[in-house]
Design a protein around this nucleic acid. Structure first.
Lengths: 362, 362
DNA sequence: CCGGCTTGCAGAATCGCTTCTTCAGCCCCG
DNA sequence: CGGGGCTGAAGAAGCGATTCTGCAAGCCGG
């Protein structure tokens, strides 16, 4: 060992293993990685010595040499200091859980990164070697995505990209089908005039959902009844819900696009003395288990974030490993309408909120 | 540029910047990192050229050279394929969110890793260079922790370590104070005989909580009334809740140690025709928002996972950066009792989330 | 008995950066 | 005018792996 200069307590390196095993570092590397032409005896010997020394290859060195880090970024839209708003939290938590699980299963680990980037090349983003990145709801010509693509790092997005972002793939829910199906459900439950609580922003989710609503109305010959509000403002939702129910052409059923809309609408209905579901049918889009326990339980549209997370990671790893050609892929995922009392005129068979697992999942 | 052999489309390296700026790579490095003795003019020039070329330093190379990766591991206890059980999900989600936020604020990123490790040195764990790791609820002589410590990687745990795990620091709730306070609260609400729904496992949370309960009972001269069940089994909770309420010495108040216990107990109470809170006072430990909407809303003990996550990351980064001496730190965090209808004999001033009078319906 | 093929392994060149060391000018002052 | 101190910048040695190439034996057939 010519190089152990003082650092007695340092972790064993490949040279230490080589020295201890009486072979060259090439042999150690080959033996441990199953490469090269080595008899099984040598491999075993090297493995034993490596084990004995507690040898761990340096991830940094390997990454530097091979160009693969085994790390996948997951962007989090940050609002000010806090990652994601509360309204997105349940969705994100479940999505991240599934994504992490899927990544781990294929030998990758997930790194949580902010969607923003400081201009300087010295923020977290450039301090971590990424094999690829999952971007949640990239904004129109997202600078982070652009930069990543420029660096040749595969990017897969959750939510179809707004502009012409050159992502390697994207996954999104079938929002049109979801809204159409849910409106049909409400109509079947007896709704005559279905209202919509929507957002003022122009993200694809809001756009697609709203236009699906408008088209459905047109097909059904119903005049649209909707209120839009800035979805990021936690207070505006309650106000908009109130406005919607205060209209002269008050709807007898409402779909709320955002997570808090269920409680917003429930509260508004109470203020106007409307019973749910007798006087007002209710559905909102949410992943929160809270709506299983409200009074009455609220029918929710679940975007199945778990499935999205899993899929998005699979596609990303495929892109990283060059599986299935380099052509961009898009995957449209179905949603789930979780029917509860708020959207059924007839009482469901039991109204007991299932005694099990308040956190429901995937 | 002597080395650009073919790879025309490759990302710009530091040598490309040096060549383009007409300086040495030393100068580039120093200029970009604010080191060395360079006039501002040179720095600016180098920065401009680097910008123009879209230069991004290689994280792997930097990590290899400096030994710092800016990455912090966050272990996830996996059960089979899935990370964490459902009962822990709400806690973990919030904890991870806060931890991620805190890490990002200090220039580190969080990597989600499984608590288990395959024996081979070639699992995710050794494929990522970690500056430190947060371990959630390490088990007695956790092999992962042992291995990390052996490698000289600082480990901070959420939950006091069971054995003599040599963690650099740990953070935990004041479980004794929490249980004592909550029992006092129940007693003040009129409870005469408080029961406990606890676990059979020997983790510190269960142990501390249970012994605090027993001590409280002894001080108060109450004979303990409790049922223990394997907390990891999602079905056993309902059964145990039933057993507890079926006892001849039926308690008139119950504290459930685990997240689903609230609904378990609510369901069991219903089966026995017990009204909550009139006949039975209820508290459970949970982070889930569901309990704000149950009928009646259930008082919960929140462990404040956000605060835990933030603290744990702060301590870890302090340890990594050598701030505040190397001595092990332990931090005891307070809990929050979120008082709702289920633990108050007198109706709270407003029945916030329960619009209808509680005696209605199921 | 010899040339060529296979086998088993070692040497050495990277990967891209940080940083220690060196060094050439230049200024200033004795 | 010469040397010491300072400034500005370059050289080069790693960091710890992977991997391409090379080379000495051993074995075989001709």
């Amino acid at each position: 060992m010519s190089r152990s200069r003082g650092r007695r307590l340092a972790r064993a390196g490949i040279r230490d293993v080589a020295a201890a095993a009486g072979v060259s570092i090439t042999t150690v590397s080959d033996a441990l990685n199953g490469k090269g032409r080595l008899p099984e005896a040598t491999r075993r010997h090297v493995r034993e010595v490596a084990d004995r020394l507690g040898y761990r290859p340096s991830a940094a060195a390997r990454t530097l040499r091979t160009g693969k880090s085994g790390l996948i970024g997951l962007t989090v839209t940050t609002y000010g200091d806090e990652p994601f708003t509360f309204t997105e939290f349940a969705y994100f938590a479940e999505m991240a859980r599934a994504a992490s699980s899927a990544a781990l299963a294929r030998g990758y680990a997930l790194v949580i990164l902010p969607a923003s980037t400081r201009q300087s090349p010295y923020d977290v983003w450039s301090n971590v070697a990424l094999d690829g990145t999952v971007v949640i709801d990239p904004s129109d010509r997202d600078p982070v995505v652009a930069e990543l693509v420029r660096q040749g790092i595969p990017v897969v997005s959750d939510g179809r990209p707004c502009g012409d972002l050159p992502v390697a793939a994207w996954v999104d829910n079938d929002h049109e089908a979801a809204v159409t199906g849910l409106l049909d459900h409400l109509a079947a439950a007896g709704a005559r005039r279905i209202g919509l609580l929507t957002g003022t922003s122009t993200d694809t989710y809001t756009r697609l959902s709203t236009s699906a609503y408008l088209q459905w109305c047109e097909r059904r010959g119903q005049t649209p009844v909707y209120e839009a509000y800035p979805a990021h403002d936690p207070c505006a939702g309650a106000v908009a819900a109130d406005r919607l129910l205060a209209r002269p052409d008050r709807p007898d059923a409402v779909y709320g696009l955002f997570d808090p809309n269920g409680t917003d609408l429930l509260a508004a209905a109470r203020r106007y003395g409307l019973r749910v579901p007798e006087d007002l049918l209710l559905v909102c889009c949410s992943e929160s288990a809270v709506y299983a326990a409200t009074d009455p339980p609220v029918t929710t549209l679940s975007l199945k974030p778990g499935r999205i997370g899993t899929t998005v990671v699979q596609l990303l790893i495929d892109a990283i490993e060059g599986v299935g050609g380099g052509r961009p892929v898009q995957r449209i995922m179905p949603t789930d309408l979780i029917v509860r009392a708020s959207s059924q005129r007839r009482r469901p068979r039991t109204t007991i909120s299932s005694p099990r697992s308040p956190e429901q999942h995937s």
